[in-house]
């Protein structure tokens, strides 16, 4: 039986994502408690240069599948490659980020390995040698503590929850793994990528989110949300009401039928706080609400509230943030 922890590192634009450092942090703690080795995994094309960055975060060994067939993400390609890595590393726990990619890859990998998956963990502990994980359900209206019936187990970890491993002067040994990939094994063919004019970070991984609701009165006023998000260095979110009304794309929806998010700062503007919206954002570290109704439910979860009209408060707030940041 395997031992230790394998951290599947995600990268974008030839840079490691912050989630990779978060996995390294929680992975080292788990590996220590389980008494096994810690290692990293990198799959893709031309990604061998990223090994060093993982070494600095305390992963002494990194398994790499560098293959032209992995230039674009496919669940088949990546899961086949990672299965080969798992066979080489023989870990007890396989960690990956519960990012847009991880939500697809995690179960695909678990299915190929024939093991279970714990999705979107927000706490991980080792109790009497066993892994206990906490994961939100009902978009955060409740949470489950679960344990794997057997090992290995795949665990996807919610981004922005665990402390990233500090950068040090560690170095990593590269272990090249040949996954023997053939074109036919990748059954889903990516024909094309339609890039938006401006590529934004996914809501689930954003540090700062500024969301707008019906209080904005119409899509033409969302520039206020966009401006505030821009000056704060965050991304735009939206309530279900405005997505259903067609003001904003569904990709921006925060809530039980949208995205469940845990940013450092969540600013809810003109959102009264329907229960399904609150569920999706109440694990944010700091919540600010601006709403003209002092009885709005959103104030019950907010750390700081301003009772007021978004059309008066937001321009002033944008100005103040600009001044503070010297923009």
């Amino acid at each position: 039986m395997g031992s230790g922890v394998l951290c599947i590192a995600e990268s974008a634009g030839n840079e490691l994502k912050k989630s990779a450092f978060e996995l390294a942090g929680v992975g080292q703690r788990l590996a220590g408690a389980l008494g096994g080795p810690i290692s990293g995994a990198l799959v893709g094309e031309g990604i061998s240069g990223l090994v060093e960055g993982l070494g600095k975060r305390g992963l002494p060994k990194v398994y790499v599948v560098d293959d032209a067939a992995l230039g674009r993400y496919t669940s088949d390609g990546y899961a086949i490659a990672l299965k080969a890595v798992v066979q080489a590393a023989d870990p007890a726990v396989i960690l990956l980020a519960s990012s847009a990619m991880g939500k697809d890859l995690g179960p695909a990998l678990a299915a190929r390995l024939g093991c279970g998956i714990i999705s979107d963990a927000i706490a991980l502990e080792v109790v009497d040698g066993k892994v206990h994980a906490t994961r939100p359900v009902f978009a955060g209206k409740a949470q489950l503590e679960v344990e794997p019936a057997d090992l290995p187990v795949v665990v996807s970890v919610r981004p922005n929850v665990f402390e990233p491993a500090a950068s040090g002067d560690g170095a990593a040994e590269t272990v090249a793994v040949d996954a023997d990939l053939t074109g036919e094994q990748i059954r889903v063919v990516v024909k094309e990528l339609l890039e938006p004019e401006e590529r934004t970070i996914d809501l689930t991984e954003a540090d700062i989110i500024v969301s707008g609701g019906r209080g904005l009165k119409g899509p033409e006023h969302f520039h206020l949300i966009e401006e505030l998000a821009a000056v704060l260095g965050g991304v735009v979110g939206a309530s279900r009401a405005v997505v259903d009304a067609g003001w904003r794309p569904h990709t921006e929806q925060v809530g039980q039928t949208g995205k469940t998010v845990s940013p450092k700062l969540y600013v809810a503007c003109g959102i009264s706080g329907a229960i399904q919206h609150l569920a999706g954002m109440s694990s944010s570290k700091c919540i600010v609400a601006v709403n003209k109704d002092p009885e709005a439910p959103v104030f019950k979860v907010a750390d700081y509230g301003i009772v007021g009209d978004v059309f008066e408060v937001l321009p002033e707030l944008i100005k103040a943030v600009k001044e503070k940041k010297g923009l």
């Binding site: 093991c115 279970g116 998956i117 714990i118 206990h132 939100p136 359900v137 955060g140 209206k141 409740a142 949470q143 489950l144 503590e145 679960v146 344990e147 794997p148 019936a149 057997d150 187990v153 109440s282 694990s283 919540i287 979860v301 750390d303």
Partner: peptide
């Protein structure tokens, strides 16, 4: 493959 130990309400803010 995954067993439930307990379900709890979310921690209060």
């Amino acid at each position: 493959k995954i067993r439930i130990r307990t379900m709890t309400p979310p921690p209060p803010r």
